[in-house]
């Protein structure tokens, strides 16, 4: 165990071939069905995302996201029904609150906010789902692997002040 923070710069040349591993959380009713729809319609997207099905995005415990990063994920996708369309009335808003807090916390832990993405996708939006995954992979690729060791290498930055919607 060394105490040196992992600050070795990411080699850009290597970045070309770097394939980020992304964990994606979907809700049973909208976004998982969007993924199903993308499949049924044979829409192609990058193979980097591995999905987990929850009943509702409201089930998303921030611990899941931290666990994914700690376990080696380079990025995390959270997706749910569009605001107003939640199968459980309004539970996706509760996820939204957590998302904004989580993003701030991650930043304090030294994780780039670009590594966390929120995506609203209805059951009819397979095409949007596929397209947004491709965009996300390209957004994460230049960041390189997340060499994050909780309690070890993470350096804390001053929190950025931003409005957190209720």
């Amino acid at each position: 165990m060394t105490d040196t923070p992992e600050t070795q710069p990411f080699d850009k040349a290597q970045g070309e071939s770097f394939e980020p591993v992304i964990i994606g959380f979907t809700c049973n009713w909208c976004s998982y069905r969007a993924a199903d729809m993308a499949g049924t319609a044979r829409m192609k997207y990058a193979p980097n995302v591995r999905l987990i099905r929850l009943m509702c995005s409201g089930r998303l415990d921030p611990t899941f996201v931290l666990k994914a990063f700690a376990g080696g994920a380079d990025a995390v996708l959270i997706s749910g029904c569009h605001p107003g369309d939640c199968h459980y009335i309004n539970q996706n808003y509760k996820m939204l609150r957590r998302f904004h807090l989580l993003k701030r916390v991650l930043q304090q832990m030294g994780i780039e906010p670009e590594r966390l993405k929120l995506l609203w996708a209805s059951a009819a939006e397979g095409a949007i789902f596929a397209e947004e995954i491709n965009k996300f992979v390209e957004q994460v690729r230049p960041l390189g692997p997340l060499n994050w060791k909780p309690g070890n290498g993470a350096h804390v930055e001053a929190p950025v002040h931003e409005e957190v919607p209720a």
Binding site: I52, L54, G58, R59, D61, P62, Q91
Partner: peptide
């Protein structure tokens, strides 16, 4: 929906079929 399960600060709420153990293990 499981929203309460995710929110309980004491971890006292569990959700059948989508428990913390199930999801955390799936992530692993």
């Amino acid at each position: 929906c499981g929203t309460c399960v995710a929110a309980c600060p004491a971890g006292a709420i569990s959700g059948t079929g989508f428990s913390n153990e199930q999801i955390l293990s799936q992530i692993e």
